[in-house]
């Protein structure tokens, strides 16, 4: 079972993509999608060095829905700033956030979420101190940002991806 299905989530995702592209649920297409889903993960197995298992999908779901709300909220904030704020008042800064998260997949998800949220852009992880360098569009309180990222984003990700090692 493990050899046949190295990553069941990827198989499922490929099947769904195939069905969406063809806009059908005809049995033939389901079969072909399953075939693709069986072959492609095995071919790309060497390309994915770290195997991650998704634990606690409900935490991930909660994190994603919370960050969707956050994206909407900061969209309005950024639009308001672009339209109405004087440009001299803008306080755009680089800030540094110390990170505890080590898992590569978790860091990838974290970077996607942070970059999707308007107003923040991930720059890089400083490798010597494991700090995240982040650019904020309109900084009012650096500690608030650090707290938000650590509480809202990092803690659920640690729960999802790193629970076993702890």
């Amino acid at each position: 079972m493990k050899r046949l299905l190295p990553s069941p989530l990827l198989t499922l995702a490929l099947l769904v993509i195939w069905l969406l592209l063809n806009q059908t649920v005809a049995p033939l297409h389901v079969l072909f999608g399953l075939l693709l889903g069986l072959i492609i993960p095995r071919l790309t197995l060497p390309l994915r060095p770290t195997q991650t298992r998704l634990r606690k999908p409900w935490v991930l779901f909660r994190l994603l829905s919370w960050s969707l709300l956050e994206i909407l909220r900061s969209c309005f904030n950024v639009s308001r700033i672009i339209l109405f704020r004087k440009q001299q008042d803008l306080n755009s800064q680089f800030i540094r956030v110390p990170l505890d998260l080590k898992d590569a997949t978790g860091l990838a998800v974290l970077s996607c979420l942070i970059n999707s949220t308007p107003g923040t852009v991930w720059v890089e992880i400083l490798s010597d101190s494991h700090e995240l360098s982040l650019h904020v569009f309109d900084l009012h309180d650096a500690n608030w940002w650090i707290d938000t990222i650590k509480q809202r984003y990092e803690r659920p990700l640690i729960e999802i991806f790193e629970q076993e090692q702890a």
Binding site: L72, C75, I82, L90, S92, S116, P118, G119, V121, H135
Partner: peptide, 19 residues
């Protein structure tokens, strides 16, 4: 178009892309 600095301009298109 109208934000003065590059590091501010990069935040403009991100609302286009998401919302």
């Amino acid at each position: 178009l109208r934000l003065p600095h590059f590091y501010q301009r990069i935040h403009g298109p991100s609302i286009t892309i998401t919302f």
